[in-house]
Amino acid sequence: MPPFVDQLPPGPFFDVERSGNVTALVDQSARLNCRVNQIGNRTVSWLRHRDLHLLTVGRYTYTSDQRFRAEHVAGSEDWPLTIKFAQVRDSGHYECQVSTTPPIKHSLWLDVVEPQTRILGGPDVYINRGSSINLTCVVDYTPRPPDFVIWKHNNKIISYDSERGGVNVVTEKGPQTSTNLLIRNASERDSGSYSCSPSSAPATSVIVHILNGD
């Protein structure tokens, strides 16, 4: 019979599908997860890659920045790092380490983004006289959909029930909010600056040029 050979249990390994890159909104909490299977009695640490600053070891936090917090629950395979009130400067590589010999490491990327507003087709839009002005404003990276979006023409709020008529706005709210401004039968008086101002994101604008079409 072959000699009996003790087989050591396999060492810890990362579940990379549960330890992926993170996109977080500015001023919201960012949660970076590191899932380690078969960790045994070893410990997980988090480091910030840009300055090799040790942030956490196990369930203890080793930084004076109180926004950072280790949130491991005993018995769980997840070793999350939470950053409260995340800022753009927090973006970058973070490294999860397991205290094997030598340590095993897993790096992931945090991207902290600010609310963004854009009008498609800008910064200049050219429309033939008598055609329709059709502007679409898209709002990204807001904690929740904006409560309202205001359209302005030359710094004056556009009235949808003015004597001019032919003005319509359709807004679809969601993780990405879009609002469409339609002005029929464009004339020279409709030329100028058009701005889109969401309640929870910065305003943006385009210049509309009305062409004679000759």
Results as ranks from 00 to 15, higher is better:
His49Leu: 13
Val112Gln: 11
Pro198Lys: 01
Ile207Ala: 05
Val125Tyr: 09
Val125Gln: 09
Asp161Pro: 00
Pro123Ala: 05
Asn185Phe: 10
Arg164His: 03
Leu32Val: 12
Glu188Arg: 15
Val113Ala: 13
Ile207Met: 05
Asn168Arg: 15
Asp51Tyr: 07
Cys137Met: 07
Gly121Phe: 06
Val206Gln: 00
Asp214Gly: 09
Thr204Ala: 02
Leu54Met: 12
Val57Cys: 05
Asp190Tyr: 04
Asp190Lys: 02
Leu108Ile: 11
Leu55Trp: 05
Leu81Arg: 10
Tyr141Phe: 15
Asp78Gly: 02
Val73Tyr: 09
Glu114Ala: 15
Cys196Pro: 00
Asp90Gln: 13
Ser45Trp: 10
Lys84Gln: 12
Pro146Trp: 01
Asn168Asp: 09
Thr61Cys: 10
Thr171Gln: 11
Ala24His: 04
Ile104Asp: 08
Leu211Trp: 00
Thr204Asp: 12
Tyr94Gln: 08
Arg144Thr: 03
Ala24Lys: 03
Asn185Leu: 06
Val88Ala: 15
Leu81Asn: 12
Lys156Gly: 02
Thr43Lys: 09
Ser91Met: 06
Ser64Pro: 00
Asp90Ala: 08
Gln97Arg: 13
Pro198Trp: 04
Leu47Ala: 06
Arg31Leu: 09
Asn180Glu: 15
Lys156Asn: 13
Ala24Glu: 06
His53Arg: 14
Leu181Tyr: 05
Asp27Ala: 11
Val112Leu: 13
Ala186Leu: 02
Arg67Glu: 06
Asn41Cys: 07
Arg50Pro: 02
Asn37Thr: 07
Gln66Gly: 12
Lys156Pro: 00
Gly11Tyr: 01
His72Trp: 14
Val206Trp: 00
Ser187Pro: 00
Ile119Asn: 04
Gln116Leu: 14
Asn37Lys: 13
Gly58Met: 08
Lys152Ile: 03
Pro103Val: 14
Thr171Met: 11
Asp147Glu: 08
Asp190His: 10
Asn154Ser: 14
Lys173Asn: 11
Thr177Arg: 11
Arg129Asn: 05
His53Thr: 12
Tyr62Phe: 15
Val206Glu: 00
Val167Gln: 05
Asp190Pro: 01
Arg164Lys: 10
Ser76Cys: 05
Leu211His: 01
Ile207Glu: 08
Leu181Asp: 12
Ser200Lys: 01
Thr43Val: 13
Ile157Met: 06
Ser45Phe: 07
Gly122Pro: 10
Thr82Tyr: 12
Glu114Leu: 11
Arg42Phe: 14
Val26Phe: 03
Arg164Phe: 02
Ala186Glu: 04
Arg59Glu: 09
Ile133Asn: 06
Val98Ile: 14
Leu52Phe: 09
